[in-house]
Design a binder for these strands. Structure first.
Lengths: 351, 351
DNA sequence: TTATATGATGATAGCGCTGTCAATTGAAGC
DNA sequence: GCTTCAATTGACAGCGCTATCATCATATAA
């Protein structure tokens, strides 16, 4: 049984609380923001008045009056992707205790949606803006340059940061993964990619150059799709690649979800990993270490990236302008070597 | 090289744009909100003034003046969990085009953090609030009852909805999964759970009652942990359960991540699924259909849940009070039957 | 022609809070 | 006693925008 709601009665405001507590509105405001500045017995009276009226301060009015929002704007490329989830968690863990509120919008890997998200966030007058990409539209760039707040670009690296850039070289990471497979003795190394955003493109470029350098490059070894990456897609791309290149010895996957799909597809087809097929993922998500076989992947310091982003933002905000010396911080990455590629160097020759 | 930012120059405001375009401030405001109400040539002049000044409206002032925020507040229990990611996507897909902005906070499965998140969101004067849980603290409940906006509780079902409740019976779902395994002929059916939030507790209750009903209940068959669920944890819980109950025939996992961990652990131990061990997951995440073996799971209509939540909210907001007849909507669930349990009914007897 | 409707723009007040400074109190010092 | 000071509390203006109503030009009808 659902009781129809009574018509909207005006929410209680500061002055209502003040009236009930028998003090002035300013005092209530102070009791909320700096409790140590009002006497204990008044504080108590005010607190109970607040509870009685179920009073909740109006943030919009507060932001307008103080021109401080305590909002940290964040634009992520995806909410579904595990990488961003971990990164966001790190941000929350840092900002929440510091009294800042993290406000997240999703760009779905589209620079135009990112631009819209940036406009929306800037409208909230955030204290800082954090972007999980380095390629903004020209208009977005201009807005950000004029925003007058710390801007952090993360995940990738760029030669021309708007303000501060914390990330890793996606190119180098793609290159490392490829060289690892080459060193294992593989010649026919495929690459799987979904939705070619700027980061993925850089990874692919790293792969391509590494292959060219060793004279192993072959267009046919690249399999990609425009749809977002899923485990299922990993299996499909792998199947497609395999039917085009039956002599495939190894695959480098644009991310761990695709790699998981490859592992499953191999299991279905009875292809032994790593004996018959080496598989490398990207991101080193939680499951990579405990899959069977455990997945070799590129370990990206996404938690550290979040922690450091937050730390730098907090320093700038609190230190009023004390900015880090360098505006471009390369956090590096590691190859998490596991069973999906741990094969003898001779293997490539046995084929 | 990082150029230190010039000191904060005041952001341009409505009156600056008005001055530059040679009109009054109200007209600029109108040009932004209802462009059809100002003449085309004026609109053009105003637009270019906006671009020139990189003007972005101050949302706080706008919200304060209009007392309409176009914000939809959402509290999710977790950002890492795939279920919520899908649910959020559905919400975004519905609200974005309608001109509403979805604001997400994370409660990390804690009712107290949820209460804090609710307070924070209510402070933004949202148009509606969506909660991915049905168990709120008494204070949170009181605040929500007085909020004067649509409140949606989702995921689970409750006898006493605050306003509108859209979800599924977690109890029935747990029961169905268990009965499925019992019908396959299994007697020793274990259950794995991580972090016993209210939803998980209901699923476990469904399992327990189903087992009791058939005289199969045994405390030893429940394995759980306080830490958040991961693939790794799935493997660990399974190992622990197996060493305590070596005669285990089947496991019902509290979610698909745990189930994935079980599949991998079985692969490592050479236990054949489903021949030697039946595995059931929960949520039917994307990978469940393409794992090897494909995972039987409880398919929860989380996308539909999101779509319907948004639809109802939009109807109430626009229709000014036209509320659905029932305040409790059961969306139901399905058993997604796949290879991880597709065994002959005789199997249980062969042991 | 004058009355009336229509569309486009402007003037004014105020949303609910906080920054600033003034007023009040009581205690301590001379 | 009177001053001085710190600790509390209050008065007032204003943050940047929008709702509301007034104004003005133009078009249409009588």
């Amino acid at each position: 049984m659902h009781m129809p709601r009574k018509e909207r009665r005006p929410r209680s405001k500061l002055s209502d609380v003040a009236l009930r507590a028998g003090v002035s509105a300013v005092t209530v405001s102070r009791a909320l923001r700096r409790p140590e500045m009002v006497s204990p017995q008044l504080r108590e009276r005010i607190d109970s008045a607040i509870k009685d009226l179920a009073y909740i301060p109006n943030r919009a009015a507060s932001i307008l009056a103080s021109s401080r929002s305590s909002i940290i704007g964040v634009v992520v490329s995806s909410l579904t992707n595990g990488v961003f989830a971990d990164y966001l968690r790190a941000l929350h863990d840092m900002f929440q205790p510091a009294g800042f509120q993290v406000m997240v919008l999703n760009s779905r890997y589209s620079p135009l949606e990112e631009e819209k998200a940036i406009v929306t966030l800037l409208g909230q007058r955030p204290e800082a803006l954090i972007l999980t990409d380095v390629d903004q539209t020209p208009y977005a760039r201009e807005l950000l340059e004029h925003a007058g707040i710390p801007i952090i670009q993360t995940m990738g690296l760029t030669e021309t940061p708007i303000d501060i850039n914390i990330g890793i070289s996606q190119y180098d990471a793609g290159s490392l993964a490829t060289h690892h497979l080459i060193e294992l003795g593989h010649r026919r190394i495929g690459i799987l990619a979904a939705r070619l955003d700027s980061r993925t493109r850089n990874r692919v470029a790293g792969y391509t150059d590494a292959m060219k350098q060793k004279g192993l490059h072959d267009e046919a070894l690249l399999e990609w799709s425009a749809v977002p990456s899923t485990v299922k897609l990993g299996g499909e791309l792998f199947s497609a690649l395999l039917s085009r290149c039956p002599d495939l010895e190894a695959v480098f996957c644009g991310n761990d979800d695709l790699a998981l799909g490859v592992l499953f597809e191999c299991a279905r087809r009875g292809i032994k990993v790593p004996e018959q097929m080496s598989v490398v993922g990207f991101n080193d998500l939680e499951f990579a270490a405990s899959s069977c076989p455990a997945l070799t992947s590129i370990a990206v310091p996404r938690h550290e990236m979040g922690r450091l982003s937050a730390e730098i933002v907090l320093e700038i905000i609190r230190g009023s302008g004390a900015r880090p010396k360098t505006s471009r911080i390369d956090l590096g990455f590691k190859l998490a070597l596991r069973d999906s590629t741990r094969v003898s160097a001779q293997r490539g020759l046995k084929v």
